[in-house]
Design a protein around this nucleic acid. Structure first.
Lengths: 144, 144
DNA sequence: TCTCGATGTAATCATTATAGTTACAACGAT
DNA sequence: ATCGTTGTAACTATAATGATTACATCGAGA
């Protein structure tokens, strides 16, 4: 199947930081916590922005949540940054031989099963809100 | 996260073919149904062999199931061909800044959630045996 | 025993996705 | 008007995947 990029973990990191930080979150500030290049951060923030999860103060700088922490689930974040063309996490071998009874029908049968598996995973992601995640994070860090 | 390769769909195709075909399944024969190169097939069969799902008649040629159709689940096949180093389908951005309370703790919190999501997916895959899948395939093809 | 088809595997290549980096125009608060 | 910040484009490096050629090896059957 397709594999998840580390964009996803960075996106969650960004949102957690924006949620917890009392100071303004510039891409430089975030990049330091994530330990990567600010441009990487800006690219991902761009995706989160497009998904309506955050907004950015142009010119002045700084990223802010667009929705409540309990209104954003891990599934929302996942969909914002994992841009699989069709949304499927599974790749299929294209163009099996239509003359072979197996080749002609295997994909539709297999695809059904895969979509069920993917749904189960996405359902799990939808159960977790950023509020919960941040709350667990706070416990770990002591305070902040 | 990481994405699944099309090896998985090819592996399922191979096993279905081996299960249904009355004639000997050589890599050339299978490659024709899958519509790819025989070497691709042999490589994947090698993985299935290593996982104990099939055996191959060396010299003579032909692949045969090593277990009963109802003893092989989609999860078995998945584990046989998707060789993620640690088994995780999620990638994490490494080396976040340990000096930042968020950077230092976000990964362990996020990882827990991701493993739950992955478990949900794998549980779903474990529910489907090749026997079921082949049975649905038979319905589709009429007979064989 | 010899032949011949089939397997197992290495080596190579093209393609694609990702991550990182530099550079720079545009924005807007001060 | 300045200056820090954002939004992108462009480029590079790296890795995974899929495909292909080549070839040594195996072993069933003539």
């Amino acid at each position: 199947m397709k594999k998840f990029s580390s964009r996803y973990s960075i996106a969650v990191h960004i949102l957690s930081l924006v949620a917890l930080s009392p100071t303004s979150c510039t891409s430089d500030f975030i990049a330091e916590s994530v330990n990567t290049n600010p441009v990487i951060i800006r690219r991902i923030i761009g995706m989160l922005k497009k998904a309506g999860l955050v907004h950015v103060r142009a010119g002045a700088g700084g990223t802010y949540l667009q929705k409540g922490l309990d209104e954003i689930t891990l599934l929302d974040v996942y969909r914002a940054v994992e841009v699989a063309d069709n949304g499927d996490i599974f790749n299929f071998h294209d163009e099996t031989n239509p003359k072979c009874p197996v080749g002609a029908n295997i994909e539709s049968v297999f695809r059904t099963k895969m979509l069920q598996a993917q749904s189960a995973m996405e359902h799990e992601l939808a159960q977790v809100t950023l509020k919960q995640l941040v709350s667990e994070l706070k416990e770990k860090t002591g305070s902040i």
